[in-house]
Amino acid sequence: MKSLREGYYNSFFSHIYVEKAVREHPRVQAILAEFPSATIMEIDHYKDVFCRRGQDYKAQHLAQKLILAEKSGNLLYEGAPVCQSFGNPHFYYSSLVMNCIYDCEYCYLKGMYPSANVVVFVNLEDMFAQTEQLLKEHPLYLCVSYDTDLLALEAVLGYVGAWNAFAKGREGLTLEIRTKCADKRYFACAEPLPNVIYAFTISPQAVIGAYEHQTPSLAARLACVSLALCRGFAVRLCFDPMIYFPEWRRHYGEMVRQAGASVDFGRIADVSVGTFRISQEYLKKMRRQEPDSAVVQFPYQNDRGYYHYPDVLLDEMEQFLTGELKKYVPEEKIFRWR
């Protein structure tokens, strides 16, 4: 049944919508060259396609389209309260790419964006300029892979490499590249820098299989982490979001043991632990779109506009995982989201 269903859908990025203003941009040309058989359509503004009424995120994710555009106005945003800031007072994120090629059922992007199509802003240099401007005012902790997985798109965009080059020698700037990607090619070639942290989301294989569709396996992620550490990259392990499911304790315990066996925790920059939480607006939309998803339909507790697991369960889950991690990592390196 699965192959028949897949056969119905157009291929990934079968159609590419390009804003007229950036049609001749060299980065647009380079991206289009990666998809020679795609149908190219010129549009006035990315919102003409991305913000249409009545879109179905779930259906669109089965045949995602690419939108190439230019971002104007403010390009850097202050981190939201649900984000882990790791104690950094000037915590910002950028949104150079909107949406992700992975399809995690619990992902907040499903509640945040009206469309599952991937928007890539090609004016990376403007982002660099704003970052430099902000650096003149204060140090900056900047997450550049928040509303997407930049590393998963690296073969097409090369944005992680570009940020890495930008960050080299820039005092006061710390970058975080959040990813579930396990593509070792990047880590085999790129230059490790102390101020660029690669934050790998690590989940039990049971969670990956059930909810993190199209993402690499736990073993593949851990192998990639190992390579990155061997090559001297700064690596963070994010056990966040923890997902509740029957036998969660056994699976999370097994995951930590598996990580401990394959990763040199002594070289890890730090780890983060946090259970799933989300704004009520996003969850409301996700529940409409994913009526059959257990992780989305879980009866979360609502506290001042944010849904999370019931307090007792939340504490039990985070305590358990922190306890398991303490066997491998000193406590001061474990960040628990509050």
Binding site: Y9, N10, H15, M41, R52, A63, K65
Partner: peptide
Amino acid sequence: CNKLTEQASGKTFYPDMLYRHNFRECG
């Protein structure tokens, strides 16, 4: 059709092109 333009208003509409088909596409 992958793009619909209403001449009177200049508005454009984009039906999703999710499914495989054997036709040529045009606005």
